[in-house]
């Protein structure tokens, strides 16, 4: 079996199903009424697409003979899967189906970008990435990214609802308080995973380059992301910063996480410049 081809087709199929699920979710949001059947179908599509994407990522790993997150394309695919898994886990305990369209949009966007702009054929790694730490450091960064993305979806909805609480849109969404608590829980969790990713990266840096920390652009922006989320966690327990202001801090933190993925690989020269573009 040609796993590389299987991987490409399952990822494409997953993207198609997610796009349908996104449109379904948007239609449910616009239409009035509970539409329970439509909600159920939308959810089934999400599960199915997540399964397909898992198959796509695993077969990519088999095709390349290594962990499937060695370049920007693979990182984007793995990141999309991570967002889906985090979102599904949260869905199990909270009714967030009205948010599905916003949770799915970044996933579809990432998958679309990955398959059009970032795509590279499956191949072996450059020597710099051949290390057991690739599995630990990069997968932690991907898992944290899933949490940050879902957190960002919740936070931006929270800001939108807080901005015009009387709007028709706001009435269909969970309350600001609920969004705030959920966003906090998933972001704080992602922050802990991110902390681990940065520390694991420092250990790898010592064994590959002879220093724990060298202010490489990727390292600097990883720290900037960390600082914004740290500021957010503090802001949430500080009078005068709670609510909207704290939410803005975590949103900027998310922007810096995304910039660290795209911007630093494209604009800056550094030790992490092996995006495969």
């Amino acid at each position: 079996m040609n796993f590389a081809v299987l991987s490409n087709w399952t990822i494409l199929a997953s993207t198609v199903f997610l796009t349908i699920a996104t449109f379904t979710a948007a239609a449910i949001l616009i239409a009035d009424g509970p539409l329970l059947k439509a909600r159920q179908i939308s959810r089934l599509f999400i599960y199915f697409a997540t399964g397909l994407l898992t198959v796509g990522l695993v077969s990519r790993g088999i095709a390349a003979g290594r962990a499937p997150w060695g370049n920007m394309y693979e990182y984007a695919i793995a990141g999309a899967l991570s967002v889906l898994v985090v979102y599904i886990l949260i869905l199990r305990f909270n009714d967030l189906s009205s948010l599905s369209v916003f949770a799915l949009m970044p996933v579809v966007l990432a998958l679309g970008l990955a398959q059009t702009v970032l795509y590279v054929d499956a191949g072996p790694l450059v020597p710099a990435l051949k290390s057991g730490w690739l599995v630990i450091h990069v997968s932690a960064a991907i898992i944290a990214g899933g949490g940050f993305t879902v957190g960002f979806t919740l936070t931006s909805t929270q800001l939108a609802v807080g901005w015009k609480p009387e709007s028709k849109f706001a009435k269909k969404m969970p309350s600001v308080e609920k969004l705030d608590v959920l966003a906090y829980r998933v972001s704080a969790w992602a922050f802990a995973v991110w902390t681990f990713a940065v520390l694991a990266g420092a250990i790898w840096a010592e064994s590959a380059w002879g220093r724990f920390w060298g202010w490489d652009p990727k390292e600097t922006w990883a720290l900037i992301t960390w600082i914004f989320y740290a500021a957010y966690l503090h802001a949430r327990v500080t009078v005068g910063w709670r609510g909207g202001k704290a939410a803005i801090l975590s949103s900027i933190g998310y922007v810096s996480y995304i910039f660290n993925f795209f911007g630093v690989n494209i604009f800056f020269v550094g030790l992490h410049s092996y995006g495969g573009l």
């Binding site: 740290a230 500021a231 503090h234 500080t238 005068g240 910063w241």
Partner: peptide, 10 residues
Amino acid sequence: SMRTAIMLLL
């Protein structure tokens, strides 16, 4: 104060 800590982080 926490407020200053947030400002210094930023």
